[in-house]
């Protein structure tokens, strides 16, 4: 069975896409109304995301470690509840956290009537919900965290295809084989398809997350430089007529450019390890600091492998078509 890897690739993509879309996000609290409290009784309406409020719900305010329990809680539906508090005078901090059954909304309420502390209250123990298989719920990402399984594999696939191209180019220098040269060119062309897809999907995600289609970021500059390098590679190919000379010049440029590109993508960002918005760069933590990151990884790695196999399949088809074209022209 020579084609097992094609089936494997499609199977992995199917699994990763379905699981990446269907697995729910972890419950979180996303909204409170009103968003400020003053001493005295107050009704706070809490909106949750993917929560299942109901039954015995315990709500409390926490300010610098000092808690105030809700005097009564009315559950409206699975994602809405209203809690009544008797806010005392003397909270220490400007911002008060709100907790519902172990879910914390940090800095939820702007607080008035500050002082040096309140009389301690002991609230009933909050029952944590059982941990289900969920994706992390991060404040600016929310549902778009699923894009991890669709946008990021584009770049992995591109780098693998460029790696295949360099491998073929090294073989060209050793053998002067035009067939290898064609394979190197086609790998670059398919790699550029994934580069374009990665750029567009990245721009959409960036607009929804950071508010701009393009930001001055180490990773984005790397992507732009990669695109420029390989377009330049194709321009170089276009400007040489003699096939053998073209094969050798293109191979030399490809190897030189790939090594510098790897340096640029993986070494220079370590040097300039500031000002990146991407997770894992600069001051930003990677996704891996989340307690549930393994749940993302279980889907992410199959997605990456699936896309790499699909890219390789596309490259294989393209090389075979190009080989036929040369054979027909003769």
């Amino acid at each position: 069975m020579r084609n097992w890897w094609k089936f494997l690739g499609i199977g992995l993509l199917l699994f990763a896409s379905i699981a990446g879309l269907l697995i729910p996000l972890a419950p979180a609290l996303v909204h409170v109304s009103p968003d400020r409290i003053a001493p005295g009784p107050v009704d706070v309406t809490v909106t949750g995301y993917n929560t299942a409020f109901g039954g015995d719900v315990k709500v409390r305010l926490v300010n610098e470690g000092q808690a105030v329990c809700a005097s009564s809680v009315a559950v409206l539906d699975g994602t809405h509840l209203t809690a009544r508090f008797d806010v005392p005078v003397g909270f220490k901090a400007n911002l008060t956290d709100l907790e519902v059954n172990g879910l914390v909304y940090q800095g939820a309420l702007f607080t008035e009537g500050l002082g040096t502390g309140i009389a301690a209250q002991t609230c009933p123990e909050q029952t944590m919900p059982a941990k289900a298989f969920v994706f992390p719920n991060r404040s600016i990402l929310y549902e778009s965290i699923r894009n991890l399984h669709f946008h990021v594999p584009m770049w992995f696939t591109m780098i693998v295809l460029m790696g295949i191209s360099v491998f073929q180019s090294i073989k060209v220098l050793g053998s002067n084989s035009l067939d290898r040269d064609r394979a190197a060119e086609m790998a670059v062309r398919i790699g550029l398809v994934f580069c374009v897809l990665g750029l567009i999907t990245g721009a959409l995600w960036a607009r929804a997350t950071w508010g701009a289609f393009w930001t001055n970021d180490v990773k984005l500059n790397g992507a732009a430089v990669t695109g420029l390098i390989y377009v330049a590679y194709l321009v170089l190919r276009g400007s040489v007529q003699d096939a053998h000379k073209r094969a050798r010049l293109a191979a030399i440029y490809n190897i030189f450019a790939f090594v510098l590109l790897v340096l640029f993508l993986f070494v220079v960002p370590r040097l300039n390890a500031i000002d990146s918005l991407h997770p894992g760069n600069g001051g930003n933590s990677g996704f891996s600091d989340l307690d549930l990151d393994d749940r993302l990884r279980v889907i992410f790695y199959p997605a990456v492998l699936g896309w790499i196999l699909l890219g390789t399949w596309m490259y294989d088809l393209r090389v075979r078509a190009a080989r036929l074209e040369t054979a027909m022209d003769r």
Partner: peptide, 21 residues
């Protein structure tokens, strides 16, 4: 999508772009 908390539209757009590409 920028201000809403769902943001599922971005995922839909990204998948649409990939399929179109």
């Amino acid at each position: 999508t920028l201000y809403g908390n769902g943001k599922i539209n971005v995922v839909v757009a990204v998948i649409a772009v990939i399929i179109l590409g």
